[in-house]
Amino acid sequence: MTVTAVPDVAGRRPAVRLRKLEDERWLAFALLSPTAVLLGLFIAYPFVEGVLLALSDAKVGDPGHFVGFANFAKLWDDNIFWTSVWNTFWYTGVTTVFKLGLGLWLAMLLNRHFRGKALVRAFILLPFIIPTVLSTFAWKWMFDPTFSVINWTLFHLGFISQRINWLGDPGLAMSSIIVVNIWRGVPFFAISLLAGLQTISPELNEAAAIDGARPWARFWLITWPLLLPVTLVVMLFSVIQTFADFQLVYVMTGGGPANATHLFATYAYQIGIGTGLLSQGAAVSLAMFPFLFAIVVIQLLYIRRVEVR
C-alpha cells in the first residue's frame, strides 16, 4: 500500500492505525517465520553442515579437520560406491518404467463404472499407505529361501524344479527389491493417474470414436497427451523418492549380498553410521545431490514445456 499521507486541510483525519498485520508484507512475514525457522534449522543448516562434514575427516567422537576433496577422491576409487551408483540408476529406471506402465493400466481399469469401485480403489492404495518397513518385512518373509511361498507357488505351477535363493544371489536380490518397489509404487501412480483420467472429458473419446478412431489410436492421440502433465509430475516425485530410497533395501538385503545391492542411501548409512566414518558417509549422500538436482531441473523444464504447449 502507498503510505504517502495526503495532507487534509478541510476535513478531519482519523488516526492511521498502525496495525502492522494489515500490511501484507508484515503479515506474510509473520505467517512464514515459523516455517522459515524450522526449515532453516533442519534443512539449510544441515546442508551446509553436510558439505563441511564431507570435506573433513570427522569420525564418530572426532570432529576432524578440513581435508578438501579427499573423501570424494576416495569414493572415486571405491568399487562399491560405483556399484551403488549403477544400482541406484538401474533401480530407479526399471521401477519407474514398470510403475508407469502398470499404474496407467490399473488406472484405466479403474476409470470405468463397476460395482464396488470405491472399495477397490480404497484397498488398492494399501501398499502405499502401510509403513514401507513393515510391508517390506512381509515381502522378505515371502522371499525367504527355505520357507518361501513364492517358491512353493512357482514349483507347483511347474516353473521351477528346485529352490531359488531370492535374496542370496546378487542379480536376483536386486530384481526382488525392484519387484517390491514396483508393488509399493503402482498404487500411487494408479490413483494419481486415475485422477488425471477423470479430468479428461469422456466426450473427447466419444467424439474420436465416432470419427472412427480405434481404442489404441484414441489412447495415443487423446488420452496420453492430455494425461502427460500429471504423468510427469507423478514421475518427478516417484523418481526422487526411488533414487533416494533407503528403507526397502535396508530391510530386504541391507545392501548385501556382498555389497551388491547398495543404493546411495544404504551405502551412506553403512559407512557413516555403521562404520562411524561420518565424513565419508556424508560424502556419499551428498554425491546424490548433483544427480538429484539434475533430475529435478530436467524434469521441471520438461514439465514447463509440456504445460505451455
Partner: peptide
C-alpha cells in the same frame, strides 16, 4: 486497492490509508 495518486474522501475525511474494515 491502494490509491496510486489522488485522494478519496468519505464525509470529507481522507480515507486513502484507512483499511477497508474501518
Amino acid at each position: 486497492e491502494a490509491v496510486s495518486d489522488g485522494e478519496i474522501r468519505i464525509d470529507n475525511t481522507v480515507v486513502n490509508e484507512v483499511p477497508p474494515m474501518d
